[in-house]
Amino acid sequence: MTTDTMDDYEMNEEAKSIEDEIHELESEDTETVGTPLLSPSKSRMTCRNVFVYYGEKMAIDNCSLDVGKNEVLSMIGPSGCGKSTFLRCLNRMNDTIDICRVEGDLKLDGQNIYDPKLDVVPLRARVGMVFQKPNPFPKSIYDNIAYGPRIHGMVDNKTDTDEIVESSLKRAGLWEEVKDRLDAPGTGLSGGQQQRLCIARAIAVSPEVILMDEPCSALDPIATAKIEELIDELREDYTIAIVTHSMQQAARVSQRTAYFHLGKLIEVGQTDKVFTNPEHKLTEDYITGRFG
């Protein structure tokens, strides 16, 4: 049993009801319908009243959303609605965009990730990211995985490095396909293999959260199915937030679904609820293909 579930067990009834009260109070100041917020014992990341601007233009308008432990959260919505922008807030990737400004309260395990004193390099290891286009480094398969653990000082000898490389590739379901050519360049793999290599690279530094921005959009159905299966397995150990344009993919892999529209978070709920009986008309229109 993990410590988290132990905590849940030990929490007495009184404490629970107080927690629920706080939860309800907080829910009231968001316009989002459904259940954007989770109880503290269940959430890994908490985001409150987040605004994002590109120069003068507002791209995220007061969104509050929690990402649960051991859950896959999918983010859906029309192009330009702010999914990628919101996702990038979660590991401060927006810092790399000059004109981008993020406001709000974003925490990982209760720690403010926008604390000026916080070093973003370890943050980005704790909150890893996988992009739409597989982007292996122009290095060997082995080095693609070993790079992170080395720069984060997690390994200092070959045996440990070998072990992390092997276990990460196994975890990403790629080991069998590459174990005999670890010295070959990562860029020489197929698209689906490259994407699993990128997932292995993210896993290698033992993240708590993995962010994925349309990770399957360049992949065929078989490679997509492998990634989806991997996401489902990874959920046991990690928290995953995934942006996807495929409604079916969101329905298949996630436990909760968040629907964004024009920078606003419209609805968040259990995925089966959102896809069978969404509360908001905008959500209904979008998921059923009645948009625009």
């Binding site: 409604m247 079916q248 329905a251 896809f275 069978t276 009986n277 969404p278 959500t283 209904e284 998921i287 059923t288």
Partner: peptide, 9 residues
């Protein structure tokens, strides 16, 4: 069509 929402219902 892989229907969802009200269409599915």
């Amino acid at each position: 069509q892989q229907p969802v929402g009200r269409d599915l219902r």
